[in-house]
Amino acid sequence: MEWLWIPITIAAALFQNVRTALQKHLTGRLSTYGATFTRFVYGVPLALGYVLLLNQGLGHALPQPGTGFLPWVLLGSMTQILATAALLACFRQRNFAVGTALSKSEVVQAALFALIFLGEAVTGLGVAAIALGTAGVMLVAVEKGRLSWRGLWAGLAGPAAGLGLLSGALFAISSVAFRGAALSTGHPSFLMAAGWTLLAAVLLQTLMLGLWLSLREPGQLRAVFASWRLSGLVGITGVLGSACWFTAMTIQQVAYVRTLGMIELVFTFLVSLLIFRERPSGREWLGTLLLLAGILLVLQR
């Protein structure tokens, strides 16, 4: 059953692609934290329904996690909120292409944090896969921003670069923490272990960010619910993507899951090429080929 992480990860990448596109539309009408809040608050009913389906419909017992579960979930929840906010803030920067490219270092950082926190080392082939995939996705991200190498170097000192690296680091920590939380349940069903972790995470994130907004940006709470159509779609696609990510990361190591997850950029490339008839540049072709090579290696590692 270990092979299931592959289609689940691909589904996660698809949902994330849609959620990110929807969330970008919210940045014009909501603040950074307001747009971040949408992916959590509207995801709670769906996460709760999923756990009830696993329990009542499929007969999986509810987990009885130990004392290590809550700290892992709390760490993952906090870092995911901050990572999402950093990425959205990066979108607002003039030189966001630099930040977006550097945020793709998440996979490399995830491998490092998984080794530190969980003692999970990747194989030599896995290291090569991560390196190729990361190089490819950064190359495409830079080209999409129409950024020259000189511009990339100059942009490293700007705020977008810092936000990008910070976003990647925080996303990496959150992924490792959520895997740690799911594994700490000791549940025999990876579906329930992941679903229980997801429900705990979105509840915590909704409470934490809701409290922050009520104290610091009370008008944003009204705006989030006033734009319920688009915000609801963000929440639904967000929790579906998270359910897939959590499940895949319960089965497989975070670094491998995140490397395969970069396939979302291949989807974007194919849509541009086949549907919009856009002509990719040489760097986009090279970046996509490097990414595909990394994906193929991680499937063979």
Rank of each mutant, 00 (worst) to 15 (best):
W3G: 03
L4R: 11
W5R: 00
P7G: 01
P7E: 10
A12V: 04
L14S: 13
F15W: 09
Q23F: 05
H25C: 04
L30K: 03
G34W: 11
A35N: 13
F37M: 15
R39D: 02
Y50K: 00
V51A: 01
L52Y: 02
L53E: 12
L54E: 00
N55F: 08
Q56I: 14
G59I: 02
P63A: 02
G66M: 05
G66H: 06
F69L: 14
P71D: 01
W72G: 06
S77Y: 02
I81S: 02
I81K: 02
A83R: 10
A89V: 03
A89E: 13
R92D: 09
N95R: 14
V98N: 08
L102Q: 01
A121K: 13
T123Y: 09
T123V: 04
L132M: 11
L132I: 05
L139E: 07
A141L: 05
A141W: 03
E143M: 07
K144T: 10
R150F: 05
W153K: 15
P159S: 12
A161D: 06
A161V: 11
G162Q: 08
L163M: 00
S167H: 05
G168P: 07
A169H: 01
I173C: 11
S174Q: 10
L183T: 02
L191W: 15
L204T: 15
T206A: 14
G210F: 01
L211V: 14
L211C: 10
S214Q: 12
E217M: 01
P218E: 09
G219I: 09
L221Y: 05
W228E: 09
R229N: 11
R229I: 10
L230P: 09
S231M: 05
G238R: 04
W245K: 00
T247N: 01
T247P: 02
V254H: 07
V254T: 15
A255C: 00
E264C: 00
E264K: 00
F267M: 10
F267W: 14
T268A: 15
V271A: 04
I275L: 14
I275M: 04
R277S: 10
E278K: 06
P280E: 11
P280A: 11
L292V: 15
Q300S: 14
Q300T: 15
Q300P: 06
R301C: 12
